[in-house]
Amino acid sequence: MNTILKKTQLSDDVFQLRVHAPLIAEERKPGQFVIVQIDSNFGERIPLTIADADLREGSITLIFQTVGKTTLKLAALKEGDAIENLLGPLGRPTHIEKLGTVVCIGGGIGVAPLHPIAQGYKQAGNKVIIIMGARNQKLLILEQEMRAIADELIICTDDGSYGRKCLVTEPLKELCLQEPKPNFVVAIGPPIMMKFCAETTRPFAVPTFVSLNTIMVDGTGMCGGCRVTVGNETKFVCVDGPEFDGHQVDFDNMMKRLRSYKTLEDKARHTCNLEQAIARKENESKP
């Protein structure tokens, strides 16, 4: 169970795994995620979105960026290895319906979770405009896949190495200024990007949904570690979300909560990189 069938490197620090998980593949819907744990005894449980599923093969696709200890360890697994613990599908599925024109915005790794959602809106008969943003061209992922879905695809890079040199909020604002305005916006990416997408659409009163990537432990509503403030109410991202009305989310509080363990984790990551560097050295020196 949970065997890695295929591993692909999508960019410098983004990896794609196709994992054998027939039950999850059968039940999953766009917007849902899994909890991954590499080692039952000392491993951390981290949430990753189900980017795609293949019913015939009984597999799900995970796309992740190496940002810390667990994602680095995950990237070190090989085809044929198994992920010790894989739980899902979790979270409420995206509510997909025919709304008219839907703008789907993906920033960085956020393009991965956006893919099944954009696909869903397209299949429901919407006009789908996709805006993808990345720091530079090398960090852009899933361009072909998104192009295949989009009625219109806009690419932005921070450094202008590809597409337009701007932030995703710029084309978003242009779309909101046009008549007719978009009927719905979905934004998935770094919290700061989602915050500003919500701020951009707020004056135009275009409903804007975001998918929150808080810290999680169990992913089933038991711990409250994933909680966020939405419209002055406390919500649990793992059971009430992960999608919420972006105009109601207290992003500043969420971003602070994401940094809860920053100093501890930076240290862990440093050690982890060091260990891997040492392991590489040792392997190289072997005859």
């Binding site: 432990v217 711990c223 409250g224 570690g225 966020v228 406390t234 207290d250 509080n253 909560r257």
Partner: peptide, 12 residues
């Protein structure tokens, strides 16, 4: 202040 960093449920 309940969602400040450093506030936990006992479960967590």
């Amino acid at each position: 202040g309940e969602n400040l960093v450093g506030v936990f449920s006992a479960n967590e």
